[in-house]
Design a protein around this nucleic acid. Structure first.
Length: 588
DNA sequence: ATAGGGTTAG
């Protein structure tokens, strides 16, 4: 029997079946992301070359290795992110007439999806038909994931409906989970919940713990903890006990609302149920505390977790470092950074990004730039986020020209800007009045038709409003619905503000009605924007009524409203007297 | 041998 063997990193065929250092093709052990110190523990594929060499050997073997071996190889290549190479090798297989099956085709589809080439993924479908290979639920599930990854929510939902309606395949819990996750991560919590309810009605697809966890996490991220906890109780009743993921989501939601007492309650509850907090649970706590500026308490949590035998990981340290940056303790952040290195925990690119961001937020651009240069010499490879962070820093100090240069540098270095990058740039262009530049970039990006989300449109709508192009902004807003993008509270608030700035109070009020009608509820910013609109138009009595509703719901005037009040009616005590609540707030 | 859930930075 022929066997594979590796010596000095070079794989070759061995005909010695009894050699201990050799493994059969079936038991080929392939390691990708984990680095392996010894070669004698199996067949290691550590780079693309290894994979290609192995492939070349495999295709010359007689008899040919089974398609299972090819699948394993391809999967390993996917783990190493060599997606396009998988496609090339697959083409090679086809050329050589090597038999294929549904699994290897699904893997090819996944490769295209991971390359963000859903269009190409679809072009694989005819190969199934030509070879008489039936699609499986995995085929469509992989496609759905790919479509969502390109933010094409509407297309994904359409495909899902088509699959169900035309009974192309029977959706299973995984497919529901994929669609639910795709929807929930893009703000469609309502639809995600509807899908859970739809699953409950069917006989074959009763929701499992993963389906519940997806919607619970989405609700928690929305701050809708009441509904999340109701669902958790529902799970318990249905004999699907919540697990560590469920509790971590709930605790994260509670932390972000600053509900520390409830955090503790759930923490105790999970421990009582023998679900032990893990490093993620504790990191949720350190992160939550740091985000509130309570870095010292976060450090106490870290001490506690170590006491309990749970080792902090890089995410934990990063969260605390970010806490230091947020509270302006940049030196402390830098100490911690060095501490990590001393503990042999290599700072990740995220650690660098946090520190760079810390400097940028303090407007210490030279320090930020220096760190940026440092990593290009040693340390982790900069990420798209690193560039975005620097861009944001430059935009914040008004250095649009430098930002443009860095952006160009980023492109020429082969980085693919993401939504954040473009949002920062567009926002910068609009903010400094480079409207032409902004619109031209927007048109270019929109023409590509992918990688846009609601935040992207929020930036553009806001920019148009602030630059006197309300009509264009409004038209874009209306277009969102036909694109399957759901305006969020920011979108509506931006439009309301746009109307208010032009004195179009009635349009602003209509928009407020519209958002509530679409199950999107005004937040503090929305209320403040409305109040400022009323103020600017001196519609004080309407404002008073509106304000009663606002304070009744627990919202209050923010700094910008107070400032406007001082400017407009600061010396008119008579008007102030008409607004008793405000009087109270100002005295506080 | 292929597809699904929770933590960090912009």
């Amino acid at each position: 029997m022929r066997r594979y063997c590796v010596r000095n990193g070079i794989p070759f065929l061995s005909l010695s079946p009894n050699s201990h250092s050799c493994f059969t093709a079936i038991s080929v052990r392939i390691f990708s992301n984990k680095s392996i110190s010894k070669f004698d523990c199996g067949f290691n594929i550590n780079c693309l070359d290894d994979a290609v060499i192995l492939f070349k050997q495999m295709v010359t073997m007689k008899p040919l290795p089974s398609v299972v071996e090819f699948s394993k190889l391809f999967k390993t290549m996917i783990n190493m992110k060599h997606y396009s190479a998988v496609v090339s090798l697959f083409r090679e297989m086809q050329k050589l007439g090597i038999p294929i099956n549904v699994i290897i085709l699904n893997i090819v589809i996944n490769s295209y999806c991971l390359m963000h080439r859903v269009d190409c993924a679809f072009s694989v479908l005819p190969i199934y038909l030509k070879n008489g290979i039936p699609f499986t639920v995995v085929t469509f599930n992989t496609l759905l994931r790919g479509i969502f990854a390109e933010n094409k929510v509407k297309d994904a939902v359409e495909l899902f409906k088509k699959v169900v309606r035309e009974k192309i395949c029977e959706p299973n819990t995984v497919m529901y989970a994929t669609v639910m996750n795709g929807l929930s991560k893009r703000g469609h919590t309502e639809k995600t919940l509807s899908l859970l309810r739809l699953m409950e009605q069917g006989n074959n697809t009763k929701p499992n713990i993963i389906n519940y966890n997806i919607i619970i996490d989405a609700l928690c991220k929305d701050g809708n903890l009441d509904v999340a906890i109701n669902l958790m109780n529902e799970m318990k009743q249905k004999d699907i006990p919540p697990d560590i993921v469920t509790y971590n989501s709930i605790i994260d939601g509670m932390c972000k609302l600053g509900e520390w007492e409830k955090c503790k309650t759930f923490f105790s509850e999970m421990v009582n149920l023998n679900i032990y907090p893990n490093v993620q649970t504790f990191t949720i706590l350190t992160d939550g505390l740091c985000k509130e500026g309570k870095v010292e308490e976060a450090k106490e949590v870290m001490g506690y977790m170590i006491e309990k035998g749970v080792e902090p990981n890089i995410v934990t340290y990063n969260s605390i470092m970010d806490g230091y940056c947020l509270t302006g303790q940049l030196d402390e952040a830098r100490r911690l950074f060095d501490f990590m290195i001393n503990k042999c925990i290599e700072p990740s690119i995220i650690s660098y990004n946090i520190l760079i961001n810390g400097y940028c937020k303090k407007k210490k651009l030279p320090e930020a730039m220096q760190l940026f240069c440092e990593i290009s010499q040693k340390g982790p490879k900069p990420s798209t986020s690193t560039y975005s962070t620097i861009l944001q820093g430059l935009v914040d100090v008004g250095r649009i020209g430098s930002a443009k240069n860095i952006y160009a540098e980023m492109l020429s270095a082969g980085y693919i800007p993401d939504l954040y990058t473009h949002n920062i740039l567009l926002n910068g262009y609009f903010k400094y009045g480079l409207v032409e530049e902004a619109i031209s970039l927007f048109n270019k990006l929109e023409k590509k038709g992918e990688n846009t989300d609601i935040e992207f449109y929020n930036v553009v709508i806001n920019g148009l409003c602030k630059n006197g192009k309300l009509d264009e902004a409004h038209a874009l807003f209306e277009k969102l619905f036909s694109m399957g993008l759901l305006p969020n509270v920011k979108t509506y608030t931006t439009m309301i503000n746009g109307f208010c700035l032009q004195g179009l109070l009635d349009e602003a009020k209509d928009m407020l009605m519209k958002m509530v009608g679409n199950n999107c509820y005004p937040n503090n910013v929305t209320y403040n924007v409305m109040v400022q609109g009323f103020l600017r138009c001196s519609r004080i009595s309407e404002m008073t009524i509106f304000m009663k509703e606002m304070t009744g719901r627990g919202f209050s005037f923010d700094a910008s409203t107070t400032k406007l009040l001082v400017n407009i009616i600061g010396d008119k005590p008579l008007v102030l007297d008409m607004i008793p609540e405000l009087h109270l707030k100002n005295k506080k």
